[in-house]
Simulated assay, not measured.
Amino acid sequence: MLSELLQGIETGGLLIIQDSCSYSGRDLLRSFIAAALNREEEVHVLCFDVSEDELTDGLKPPATQRLHVHNAYPDPLGWTDHPAFAVQQFRLEDLTDLVKQASQPKPATLVIDSLSWVLRHAAPPAVCRTLQQLRKGGAVRAVVALLHADMHQRGTVGSVCHLASSLVAVAPGPKGNEAVAKITKRSKSGKVAQDEETFCITEDLTVAVLSRPSSLPEAKPNGSEEEQADPTANLTFNLRLSESELEAKQKLTLPFVFSKEKKTALLHPGPGSGRILYEPDANDDYDQEDPDDDLDV
């Protein structure tokens, strides 16, 4: 599924790469940038966490001609007179103007490195509203953002990830150069698909999927020791019935189960059935209005 996402994000999609201090998702983010440039898409990058040189390291021309880096790393809060980009400009109007000034007529892909910087200096509801507005189309075709999950409260991370059409949570893999990606993809129909893959990233930012840890384990050969082991072998009581015991059980009539003959006898009593008749006599002093009249109370 990771290879499928690298081949292209649908229009209006929001892909979030969620990482932590144990593993950085920036190399995977740069792989998505390289894949979009190879598809001849216009890519705009909001650079907060690292310098422009570090972000573009490994990206080769002529693909970089379609890459537009808005470097907010030197002055992310806009303290100078003319910052390249600042957190306060993370609004739909400013982002639309920024993209339209340097892009071709077709919509571009917006990459945010990282969304955590914006969330640390702007209200999360306003950030979520801007992301939702960007998804509706216009100058931006799709959004790819890096999110450091351990920098925010769980509610903030959950709110942002709820907006994502695709979520890739990365963690360290079994080897030093490997990582594990837990992928959640939501289609427009509401269907949710999940997968888990082990991958590595080469020097040219190509992602190689190595295996799927979540796949079913291979079947063991017949006659293995685990298959022959009987968990009921050493019990002090028997869990199975013999053939004679099973036959006796099937013939047993339960007390609360009425046979056809018993039902007929109860519903249609025969001539020999008894009845109790009561005829009050003159000595019975029974007052219907006061049934306790004969009591000395």
Rank of each mutant, 00 (worst) to 15 (best):
residue 1 M to R: 04
residue 1 M to F: 09
residue 4 E to L: 08
residue 10 E to P: 02
residue 12 G to R: 02
residue 17 I to A: 01
residue 22 S to P: 03
residue 25 G to D: 05
residue 29 L to R: 00
residue 29 L to Q: 06
residue 35 A to W: 01
residue 36 A to W: 06
residue 37 L to Y: 00
residue 39 R to V: 13
residue 39 R to C: 05
residue 43 V to E: 05
residue 45 V to A: 00
residue 52 E to S: 06
residue 53 D to Q: 14
residue 56 T to A: 14
residue 56 T to N: 13
residue 59 L to G: 04
residue 63 A to Q: 15
residue 65 Q to M: 12
residue 65 Q to D: 12
residue 66 R to C: 04
residue 69 V to M: 00
residue 73 Y to N: 06
residue 75 D to E: 11
residue 76 P to M: 00
residue 77 L to V: 00
residue 82 H to C: 03
residue 84 A to K: 08
residue 91 R to Y: 00
residue 94 D to G: 00
residue 96 T to D: 03
residue 98 L to S: 08
residue 99 V to H: 05
residue 99 V to Y: 03
residue 100 K to L: 10
residue 102 A to Y: 07
residue 104 Q to T: 14
residue 104 Q to E: 14
residue 105 P to N: 05
residue 106 K to Y: 12
residue 111 V to Y: 05
residue 113 D to S: 09
residue 114 S to D: 02
residue 115 L to N: 01
residue 117 W to P: 02
residue 118 V to N: 00
residue 122 A to C: 04
residue 125 P to Q: 01
residue 137 G to W: 12
residue 137 G to R: 08
residue 143 V to G: 03
residue 144 V to L: 10
residue 147 L to K: 10
residue 150 D to S: 08
residue 151 M to T: 10
residue 151 M to I: 15
residue 152 H to D: 04
residue 154 R to P: 14
residue 156 T to W: 13
residue 158 G to Q: 10
residue 160 V to H: 02
residue 160 V to T: 04
residue 164 A to C: 05
residue 168 V to W: 15
residue 176 G to E: 13
residue 180 V to G: 03
residue 180 V to Y: 11
residue 184 T to R: 13
residue 188 K to D: 09
residue 188 K to L: 12
residue 191 K to S: 09
residue 204 D to W: 09
residue 204 D to T: 11
residue 206 T to H: 15
residue 207 V to D: 02
residue 223 G to C: 05
residue 224 S to V: 07
residue 229 A to S: 08
residue 231 P to T: 06
residue 236 T to P: 14
residue 236 T to F: 02
residue 238 N to D: 05
residue 242 S to V: 01
residue 245 E to T: 09
residue 249 K to T: 09
residue 253 T to A: 15
residue 257 V to S: 11
residue 264 T to H: 13
residue 270 G to Q: 10
residue 272 G to L: 06
residue 277 L to D: 06
residue 278 Y to Q: 06
residue 282 A to S: 10
residue 282 A to F: 04
residue 286 Y to F: 11
